[in-house]
Write a protein that binds this DNA or RNA. Structure first.
Length: 862
RNA sequence: GCCGGGAUGGCGGAACUGGUAGACGCACCGGACUCAAAAUCCGGCGGUAGCGAUACCGUGGGGGUUCGAUUCCCCCUCCCGGCACCA
């Protein structure tokens, strides 16, 4: 009796993924094959996958992400580049605190344990990572530079302090993340959540809005959809900021608003301000109903998605302002849909030409006054129609001297007149808001500020960095544990030496991930944030990560790059030259609805699916009780839907190469990937076929005779000529698909090539007779040798272990060197010339027949 | 709600620049091998009609441009991602 894993990777044994993969990984490790150097003189290629949050174990999204990155890494390596593929850990964040609450473990310990486990998993998947550059953002020698740059930004006014809204749980006396607020209630306490304004530090990303927008045009390597999303997020709009004058308690005041539709200014029939607006506060002073309404507005979410879909509510303030152009009295309302943080916190209401205002006006019976007309269309106050808001087709009416003007001319004329009255002017407006980075949480980078009664907020001097986060706190869900640590909080004011209080807010984890890709170039640098090696490796040549990061992470990283460039730390403008946004990994969702309406989810592994004779689905039952379950379609793998598949079991059962091949073959990288157990089987079957083919034909493949000239082989034999043409045609396709990063068709090309190899017209008699091969000088064997050499190399980036093993076993290493350095196979253009070509006959676009003609047939012959 | 993306056989997907729709794989069906099963190998496989050659239909739905549309344009439906404190 023997154990499979004790077998050596040997040609004549059957495909043993475990032994092959262990040997290959040892080989790579012993030869330090993935250590990236700055001194080789080869062109550099920095291939980066988004680093993982160490949540416990890898999920399929990670496996997909890193397989794509690894394929690109190995492909470029074989193409002759010096490739850097680093890995690190986005190690600060909320889940560590949640785990601490649940298990009473310090977040640090939980995080380091997870990192150790996940690192083993990454190694077992065979990724070509330079582990000497590994970093974790929770280590002081990383986050000290967050603090250092924060202080530089503070000096330059890029960091500033103002109040911002947070979710406040009144029971736990703690700030909650949006994720922790469920239906307006705290996830642990069930208490109604309030919005609370607290002082926070902000990064002035809006100062860079223009450049962040314009520079999108300098990124041809980014997907159009991501650039469009970012452009819309930044949201540059040209409009008019203007004021409604009013008198309050004898003082002349102005209510400022911003609008992109100044041409509809004569249609204003009300104004609306946010609940936090000073005017609202003032009105509420003597009106308990308003106070109650403002409180109601303060409950409820600060999330845009909820604001946009919730019922629009408003209340009169009894305060009137004056229309700046026609002098009419306009009443000010408080609207729950007006955001204090956006624009002026106040808007003009034009019900006739803004859909939201229209519905608001109908609800509260406010006048609707049409001021734009379109010939041939009838305006009705009963029903909203889309053309009411179309600025491109109408002209002004009921607008005094502006009547008859189109959008552009009306806005210009109105802006000029407002400016003459000192009541407004044209202004660029950004949708983008400044980035609030303060978090009232423990597991993050401490903000390096000391509060002093005498000196105010004092920056921690550089010499005292890093401000080290104590690693032994165990959060309990009630407030920030740092506040309960006198040893952390109590300190001396660096300016006056009096007792001070250390800031206990930490930084948003997006800060950590905004520059980690630079630190990989110089992870061991103790004396500065970055050094000359950053100049060598950056910008990242290829960045790969989930589409869900298309806006925030990528925008913040671009912003940090621009700040660091301004500080003279780096000399490039954009961090990522090429971007690949991979799709999510989905799996089918199975569930039952219990009597109470509660939904119970079942893992697909626990569900049995029965098919009928035509392969269609007949029944879906739970294995445990044989009773039917419902299918909820495909959804992203998640804990809540219980539809995840653990990559570890996949690796253990089939091996890393099977996992990698399935991931790459199942769909193109940018699309969602649907999990399929039988697809995994298929991938494994292919690898077994590849191994068996090579084992069966080992003698033939090994045969090579350098005295036989490539072009001579096929001259006399049209079947061989056609076979070699087919191989090179598939190679050409694989090259094209590597170029466009469509790995599913690369894998498909590998399968086609193996199919073609198996049909190769090879005379096997001399092989089976065990005669000395050299006496045959057989061009068929030469073709076999060439083709297998091509096949192993085009597959290597996807399934590196099996191809590494076969390369050595078949003697290619002696012929061409180690597979990673063997060079990429070249398409022989002469092999692609076909003797005959097929002509397709179409009539009115319909197929009406086809014919084969000789390559050199002339018009008359055809 | 707003922004972005997607929809092709029973399933995942292919079709590069508007030119043979369904490559490759999965599932399924038939056959070989086997005492048998698994594995493996060979063959079939969009739908309808037909013994057949073949004909017609067919890329989410509706319309348009074109000699010709999965591909370009307009409208609609459903699904997915993001919406600023999940990462």
């Amino acid at each position: 009796m023997f154990f499979a894993e004790d077998l050596q990777a040997d040609m004549q044994n059957k495909y043993n993924a475990r032994a092959i993969e262990r040997e290959a990984q040892q080989y790579w490790d012993e030869h330090h094959l993935f250590r990236a150097a700055e001194t080789t003189g080869k062109p550099k290629y920095y291939c980066l996958s988004m680093f993982p949050y160490p949540s416990g174990k890898l999920h399929m999204g990670h496996v997909r992400n890193y397989t794509i990155g690894d394929a690109l890494t190995r492909y470029h390596r074989m193409r002759g580049y010096e490739v850097l593929q680093p890995m690190g850990w986005d190690a600060f964040g909320l889940p560590a605190e949640n785990a601490a609450i649940a298990n009473n473990v310090p977040p640090a310990q939980w995080t380091y344990d997870n990192i150790a486990y996940m690192k083993r998993q990454l190694i077992s998947l065979g990724f070509a990572i330079d582990w000497e550059r590994e970093l974790a953002t929770c280590m002081p020698d990383y986050y000290r530079w967050n603090q250092w740059l924060f202080l530089r930004m503070l000096e330059r006014g890029i960091v500033y302090k103002k109040t911002g809204a947070v979710n406040w749980d009144p029971v736990d006396q703690t700030v909650l993340a949006n994720e922790q607020v469920i239906d307006g209630r705290g996830w642990r306490t069930g208490a109604l959540i309030e919005k609370r304004e607290i002082p926070m530090y902000y990064m002035a990303i809006t100062k860079y809005a223009d450049e962040l927008l314009a520079a999108l045009d300098t990124l041809p390597g980014w997907p159009e959809r991501v650039k469009t999303m970012q452009a819309n997020w930044i949201g540059k709009s040209m409009g008019v900021r203007f004021a409604f004058p009013y008198t309050l308690e004898g003082k002349d005041e102005k209510l400022w608003v911003f609008t992109t539709r100044a041409d509809t200014i004569f249609g204003v029939t009300f104004c609306a301000v946010a609940a936090e607006h000073p005017l609202a506060m003032h009105a509420a002073k003597r009106n308990p109903k308003l106070t109650a309404f403002i409180d109601e507005c303060r409950r409820g979410s600060a999330m845009e998605a909820e604001l946009a879909t919730m019922e629009k509510k408003g209340m009169r303030t009894g305060i009137f302002v004056t229309h700046p152009l026609n002098g009419e009295k306009i009443e000010v309302w408080i609207g729950n849909y007006v955001l204090m943080g956006y624009g002026e916190g106040a808007v003009m209401g034009v019900p006739a030409h803004d859909e939201r205002d229209f519905h608001f006006a109908r609800q509260y019976r406010l006048p609707i006054r049409q001021v734009i007309e379109v010939p041939g269309r009838t305006f009705s106050t009963d029903q909203w129609q889309d053309w009411y808001a179309d600025k491109d087709i109408g002209r002004c009416i009921h607008s005094g001297k502006y009547d008859g003007l189109d959008y552009t001319h009306a806005v210009d004329a109105i802006a000029v007149d407002l400016k003459a009255k000192a009541l407004g002017e044209k202004q660029v407006m950004w949708r983008l808001r400044d980035w609030g980075i303060s978090r009232q949480r423990y597991w993050g980078t401490p903000i390096p500020i000391i509060h002093c009664a005498g000196c105010g907020d004092v920056p921690v001097p550089d010499a005292q960095l890093p401000v080290v986060l104590p690693e032994d706190c165990v959060p309990d869900g009630t407030g920030n544990p740092l506040n309960k640590r006198p040893d952390f909080v109590n300190c001396k004011c660096p300016r006056c030496g009096q007792p001070g209080r250390r800031e206990t807010d930490t930084m948003d984890t997006f800060v950590d991930s905004s520059w980690y890709y630079m630190r990989f170039a110089c992870a061991d640098q103790k004396n500065s944030m970055v050094d000359a090696r950053v100049k060598y490796w950056l910008p990242v040549d290829q960045y790969i990560g989930g589409i869900e990061h298309a806006i925030l992470h990528l925008l913040y990283s671009r912003f940090w790059t621009k700040v660091m460039r301004e500080l003279g730390l780096i000399d490039f403008d954009e961090p990522f030259a090429h971007l690949l946004t991979q799709g999510m990994v989905l799996n089918e969702i199975f569930f039952r609805r219990s009597e109470g309406g509660r939904i119970v989810y079942f893992n697909p592994a626990d569900v049995a699916i029965e098919l009928d004779d035509s392969g269609k689905r007949k029944s879906v039952t739970l294995k445990a009780d044989g009773q039917p379950v419902e299918s909820g379609g495909m959804g992203t793998m998640s804990k809540s839907k219980n539809n995840g598949v653990d990559p570890q079991s996949l690796i253990e059962e089939y091996g890393a190469d099977t996992a990698r091949l399935f991931m790459m073959f199942a769909s193109p990288p940018e699309q969602t990937l649907e999990w399929s157990d039988s697809g995994v089987e298929g991938a494994h079957r292919f690898l077994r076929r590849l191994w068996d083919y090579c084992a069966r034909n080992e003698r033939a493949i090994r045969f090579r005779d350098s005295s036989v000239r490539v072009n001579d082989w096929t001259k006399e034999d049209s079947r061989l000529r056609a076979s070699r043409g087919e191989i090179h045609k598939i190679l050409q396709q694989a090259n094209f698909d590597y170029g466009r990063m469509q790995f599913n068709t690369v894998a498909s090309a590998g399968m086609k090539m193996l199919n073609a190899l198996e049909k190769l017209p090879v005379e096997t008699t001399p092989l089976n007779a065990n005669l000395p091969l050299q006496s045959f000088r057989n061009p068929q064997l030469q073709l076999m040798n060439e083709s297998v050499g091509i096949l192993l190399r085009i597959l290597n980036p996807i399934v590196p272990h099996i191809t590494h093993a076969l390369w050595i076993e078949l003697g290619f290493e002696k012929q061409l060197g180690e597979i990673l350095s063997a060079g990429w196979p070249e398409v022989d253009q002469t092999a692609l010339i076909q003797d005959e070509i097929e002509l397709v006959l179409q009539v009115h676009g319909k197929l009406r027949g086809n014919m084969r003609v000789a390559r050199d047939a002339d018009r008359a012959q055809i």
